[in-house]
Amino acid sequence: MHQNNFNIALEVKDLTLCYQQYHAVIEGLSLSFAENKISVIIGPNGCGKSTLLKTLANVAQPSQGEVFLNTKPVHEYSRKEFASTLGFLPQKNNVPSGITVRELVARGRYVHQSFLQQWREADELALKQALQWTQLTNLAEQPLESLSGGQQQRAWIALVLAQQTPIILLDEPTTYLDIGHQHEVLNLCRWINKTHKRTCILVLHDLNQAARYADHIIAMKDGKIVATGTPKQVITPENIAELFNLSCSVITDPIRNTPLIIPEFENIEDIHFE
């Protein structure tokens, strides 16, 4: 399944994933992600967005179907080979006690090392670059647990960037960030994508940010695909109503020329919560 004749970086075929062998979170899903593009997965809470990302990252195992990385089934990759190709930042991360920002980000280089080949100049360069890109250079020696939630989030993103994989998966990377840092992170993703040709696949809650930064959007509901395509193809009043039960208008962003959602305003006397 190819999109617009782009090379395929990741692909799932007939994917079904169940919790406790009974409840299907994702069922019969087939989908591909284009190489060197920014793809964003959107949808209501509990629709399977994060589950799909975990499956792509080979963290969750499908009950049925297959995930392909560069046309090769992911289960055929060695752990090190897979981690050298795809970096994944989950939605929630446990902060290791006593670890500094530098030590955390350095973990992104472990996959490039071996018993005979320890820390190298290339590792140090990748570490410094990741810290610089996430604006954490001055905090490198600080304990991670002493940082704000937003700073910690940027440190985790730096870890993935230090891994230097051609494919990056980020599950809600703007969580805990104020609006300024949200756009810094998304601009960083776009810059990495355009300048360094990284394939980026993100889960985002903010639909206007998804529309602004994505090349391709996948809209999910109840474990199934509602719509896929460019932001203009997916971000429509009809799709938003189906996905979120929200009436809205969609106008054109005057800066980026992308869709911009304006929820309809309800008079207080028309709102009922019984």
Rank of each mutant, 00 (worst) to 15 (best):
L177F: 10
I179V: 15
I179G: 03
I179H: 06
Q182T: 01
N187H: 14
N187K: 11
N187T: 14
R190K: 15
W191E: 15
W191L: 12
I192Q: 12
I192P: 05
T199C: 05
C200L: 14
L207I: 15
L207N: 05
N208C: 09
Q209T: 01
A210K: 04
R212S: 02
Y213K: 02
Y213W: 00
A214R: 02
D215R: 06
H216M: 08
H216E: 08
I217M: 07
I218T: 09
A219I: 10
M220V: 00
D222A: 13
D222T: 05
K224F: 09
I225G: 00
T228G: 10
T228L: 03
G229Q: 04
G229P: 02
T230R: 07
T230C: 03
P231Y: 04
P231G: 10
V234L: 03
V234A: 05
V234R: 03
I235F: 08
T236E: 13
T236C: 09
P237V: 12
E238C: 02
N239H: 13
N239P: 07
A241F: 14
L243R: 13
L246I: 11
S247Y: 11
S247A: 14
C248T: 11
P254R: 11
R256V: 02
R256N: 15
N257Q: 15
N257R: 12
L260W: 09
P263D: 04
